[in-house]
Amino acid sequence: MAKKNQSPNAGVVAAEVPKELKLHMLRQMISLRRFEEEVKRLYCAGEITGAIHLYVGQEAVAVGACACLRDDDYATSGHRPHGHCLAKVFDLNRTMAEMMGRETGLSRGRGGSMHQFDKAKGFLGGNGIVAGGVGIALGAAFASKYRGTDQVTVCFFSDGASNQGVVHEAMNIASLWKLPVIWLCENNQIAATTTVARSTCTPDIAPRAEAYCIPWAICDGNAVLDVYRTVGEAVARARRGEGSTFIECKTYRLEPHCGIIADQRPKEELALWRSPKKDCIKRFEALLVGDKTFTPQEIEAMHRRVEQEIAGAVEFARKSSFPAPETLYDNVWAEGAKS
């Protein structure tokens, strides 16, 4: 039942991916990176407040996975949701407006960094609770099966979350009922300050799925095409009614856990993961230039375009109003009224 997936050379599959899609993925990855860099800047300037968990370094995972999904598929995320939200919904303006607490934000400014939702594109939320999206993903997948549709759900969570009990409850149920859910564990090797070596008794996380008869794979989370191919296979299985898959993407977060608190990780390690050898965007760009999909000039132009779009998103957010205090009670209840 279980299947181990050795990380293939991403270059081998690159040729099979249409140029359009490669363009889309690169554009999204650059957008996610620039979005987070801008969020960091606004946070330091005091324009964004609260707890922010940046996704820098892990873009290949969200982008590669969401490239396999349709708008009517579902995704859930956790406390580090900006990348997943952007990759699934791709609305820079309203996501930025949510970060800045504006009425035009995805969640009308009620959610903020950790609670972005978009019903129209099946994004069932970031979550302030580590592993809080796991049961929700199970339920979305249950609903698809109940209605007899071929929608799938991707549940994004990380190495720290993988040790929550609900992950195990949910894997058991997903396997038992053959639900179309993909458990996508982004192993960025650390949870706040606790490394996987200190939190997790197994060298890899994905093989735990074997105990639940769920097929699993480990892929290079910094190789977007590897993620795309691996998740794509799992999505196809789920759509065929063959149930759940567990995918562990090995990656690395390049920013501190939250906000700008000091990072305890070795400087050399950070430098290595920021280098062209490891950084997911630099790697993808090198691949696309190498196989002549794009010229360096075209890539440069894309960076400039994204730069403008991000500036536009900040502008959009700044121009939007804050929610009016008298709307405080909106949507506590479905009726909209006080109870």
Binding site: Y74, L124, G135, G139, F142, A143, Y146, A170, L176
Partner: peptide
Amino acid sequence: TPISEEAFCGLAVGAAMAGL
């Protein structure tokens, strides 16, 4: 369900979000 209150209550949340 199995004896998994956290999972099946979470399931209810997700199922409701997906229209059930």
